[in-house]
Design a protein around this nucleic acid. Sequence first.
DNA 1: AGAATATATG
Length: 723
Amino acid sequence: MLNGFRFLPSPFQPIFLITRSISHVHDDRFLDSFDAFFQRCFTFQQARQLHSQLVLTTAHRVPFLAARLIAIYARFGFLSDARKVFDAIPTEGLHHLLLWNSIIRANVSHGYHEDALELYAEMRKLGFLPDGFSLPLVIRACSSLGGVDLCRIVHCHALQMGFRDHLHVVNELVGMYGKLGRMEDARQLFDGMFVRSVVSWNTMVSAYAFNCDSLGASRVFKQMESKGLQPNSVTWTSLLSSHARCGLYDETLEFFKRMKTRGVETSAEAVAVVLSVCADMAEVEWGKEIHGFVVKGGYEDYLFVKNALIGAYGKHQPMGDAHKVFLDIKNKNLVSWNALISSYAESGLCEEAYAAFLQMEKSGSDGQSPVRPNVISWSAVISGFAGKGHGEKALELFRQMQLAKVTANSVTISSVLSVCAEVAALNLGRELHGFAVRNLMGDNILVGNGLINMYMKCGDFREGHLVFDNIKGRDLISWNSLIGGYGMHGLGENALRTFDEMIRAGMKPDNITFVAILSACSHAGLVAAGGNLFDKMVREFRIEPNVEHYACMVDLLGRAGLLKKATDIVQNMPIEPNEYVWGALLNSCRMYRHTDIIEETASQILTLNSKITGSFMLLSNIYAADGRWDDSARVRVSARTKGLKKIPGQSWIEVRKKVYTFSAGNLVHLGLEEVYTILEELALHMVSENYKIDSCYSQEFVYDEPKHFLQTESREARCYVMP
DNA sequence: AGAATATATG
């Protein structure tokens, strides 16, 4: 029987009473038994019961007990309850550092870093000197807030307080510099330590892991072994995560196996890493296998393992199993919800993701911990809609996110920027640029690439290039965005020049680079250059052409009127042509009025189980233009029987920071009749600049490629004329 | 005291 408590009726139903009077509370044995009980509190309800029992005897004001209560509430995510316990302490009770440490810890572990620092300041004002437990917490809060200056200040503060050689404090400082991405500083601190514990080594390995440096992590790992130190399960886990973060999935799994053969205990954390690798590898079967392993090994007790399991099941459909795991979790936390939402989003089920998001906002009413959406939740739904082409919805959610006072991070910004690029929302894009600079994300590669892409697609080449020039550590995506932007606007020469520069800079082009450069050639009619590049791609860069590359080539040749060569490619390509390839051919036939090939191509498209309505509509329009109304109707019926519905083509104009979406014929309804006047002016302008206008209807313009935008100097609007 | 799961641009 535990001293001080009487359990009723079984030890697993820890409903208990404090039987001793408050004077015994300071008794060490009492505290031990209290701790033993404390360890068994597994649910929030049990914590509440414990609290009310303590309140009955006013023992909740005893600093030791209060500190433990704070910790238990924090464990279940009820920070406000933890705070209540803290606030209930009478002033004289606050003279216990333990209490301050526990409330600061509660705040730090739940991401309330500013609050933690405020509490620390308050504590200092009362004259407390921090100990070896408070300082690491404060350092952690600063490093999570991420400001370099703040981190420097806290480093100085630690030195001033005399913790220069304090093991825990220096360990935390090493971790802090790692999180800032300043590995040289971390290394220097680490090298200067007189005494290093396993924790110090582990901090270094995980710092490299955090910075996606698997080589650095492996180096420290080996160094540790060569010094005769035994890497423990934490070291191994960090090593695993360093490889997982670099996308080295096979290596991660290899290390996981080696960990077992070396007799190192497989930690729950390591299992979570492996599950995340399964999620990224689309290896649902392995996920299932590991699920068995999880159940057998008792890892199910760990929430984060279950959360990882949601990802492993949910990333690649069907979502049933993931949802089952989710529903099974008793104390769902933020990550559980985010894993569910992002699984839906990644599977392309953006409406379901949004539904889960809304449900999350209402969470907490069922006795579970209330969870509010954070940056990641918002980013996940936004990118879900963005990925499905629902740009408008994505932008609307982004606005809502700002109203909800959730600060966007580089990931959010990059997703929203890609929407801006798609819907040509240049002004919003500029706004985001400003936001990024103000929030010190100017150097972020994700944001930088998003900006390049956005500016280029919106036609602001100067600004796009400026961002490109100033970006540090530009990567393949930066180059691809630049080339793709030029290509899209028909500036083939610029695209080619950029491609050459890229090669000279020692960058290795990938298949996406070639899609960009080949389509740039076809938009600009650079037939010879395109052909050369296609050869180069295969011979020199050893990149196997995919359907997209073939579609580009068919488009390139067909557009130039080389219909024979284009058809040859379609007939001889080693992979099955898809709707894009046939569509490119069809379009060329239309341009050059080659009715004989049209028939052949048309029948191919009709037999294809294509989900692309564009080709059907193109075909139908060709027949209609030829006066073959029966054939035209036949194609439309065929599209309808396949369950295809044409989403009307849309155009955008951005006037005074508002994006107007419209499709042919509805301008009068929107009160934008004057747009027609502008369009007519543009059409005349295009004719005078020798751009070919394919067909011109009374209320609807269909311009042929090259897609080109023209800026009207006289008005403040930029018009993008889409085909 | 240290490890872990959720968002990522072309």
